[in-house]
Write a protein that binds this DNA or RNA. Structure first.
Lengths: 173, 173
DNA sequence: CTTGACGGCTAACGTCGTTAGCCATACTGT
DNA sequence: ACAGTATGGCTAACGACGTTAGCCGTCAAG
């Protein structure tokens, strides 16, 4: 898996992820993180240069896992856009806080493992037969659906399955 | 316009908006806001109960203005989805920080002027002839395109006009 | 003339990310 | 066997943040 981190740093990242997923981004505090590990906040700086660096690690995890989810969906149903969409939605809704963290700010590209961003994008590219404009449209649609759902922007009684189906049916070639 | 605020509160909201639009959400600080007004931070609490309340006012402004932008587009080109999309995109990109502030958290619905959220949604509903699923798909697509563009998630050389066209062409009935 | 609303102020608290500097343990090289 | 050096903890502290408590001047209305 990830050997870009020292073992202790990996433990810290794990605790950070639990904190984030359990209680949201505002709860992801260096002091709270240190508490969970039984140490004091300044000790964290022996393992990460700053808070952003641990966030970057979580973002890398998210990219990696969602890439894996998409690749797995691709393998089960090659070329199927709805299968990819389903996998994307399922992963995002299973980790809403992580998804937001990774998504609601500019990507820290230089700090990310090389090629990871591309890898996450490839399954969709393949399903779109290299049609870049279509791939970007579908990505925007999927991200929009997910993020609006996570933030509760749709009416409570909205049939989101129907909206997904409607969008995908129209977008697919 | 907005008479939901005392005059002084309106001045404060104006300064807050300038701060936000000029320098982004992290710069929107009660101390910085007070500075710009020539007063001290605690004095702000004579006009707003807390920081969230001034953010809510900015969100209300954004909803109102984007509703107006959509209504105006609707009037110029009744029933045209691309015209609405163009207006949406243009407004959002003209106020990226405000758009993010309004969009990247759950809506503070109870604190918002009644009916405002609906008003902002109506032009799209009308252009979709009451097809709820379609309207939600288009909304998700448009929001996704805008927010991904604002956060620089697309490749630098991506032809976003083409992606917009592609998505709208597919989604439109 | 008094009263009270209005709108400023200072001082302070607790929390946040972060820095500086100290110290114990444990591995390494001679 | 001993010195040296990572490694990984610690405390104390700083500055910025949102926020609270409590004080004070100005001014219009009774």
């Amino acid at each position: 898996m990830t050997d870009r981190l020292t073992p202790r740093a990996r433990q810290i990242a794990t605790a950070a992820r639990e904190l984030l997923e359990e209680s949201g981004p505002t709860a992801l505090t260096l002091r709270a993180l240190a508490d969970r590990l039984g140490i004091k906040a300044p000790s964290l700086y022996k393992h990460f240069p700053d808070k952003q660096a641990v966030e970057v690690e979580l973002i890398a995890q998210m990219l990696e896992e969602s890439a894996a989810a998409l690749e797995s969906a691709e393998q089960r149903a090659p070329g199927s856009l709805p299968a990819l969409a389903e996998a994307y939605r399922t992963y995002a809704l299973a980790h809403p806080h992580l998804y937001c963290l990774s998504t609601e700010r500019p990507l820290p590209r230089p700090a990310l493992p090389a090629g990871l961003e591309d890898r996450a994008a490839m399954p969709l590219m393949r399903a779109c037969d290299g049609d870049l404009d279509l791939a970007r449209s579908v990505w925007a649609f999927a991200h929009g659906m997910v993020i609006l759902e996570i933030h509760g922007r749709f009416p409570d009684d909205a049939d989101l399955n129907a909206a997904w189906k409607r969008g995908l049916k129209s977008l697919h070639p």
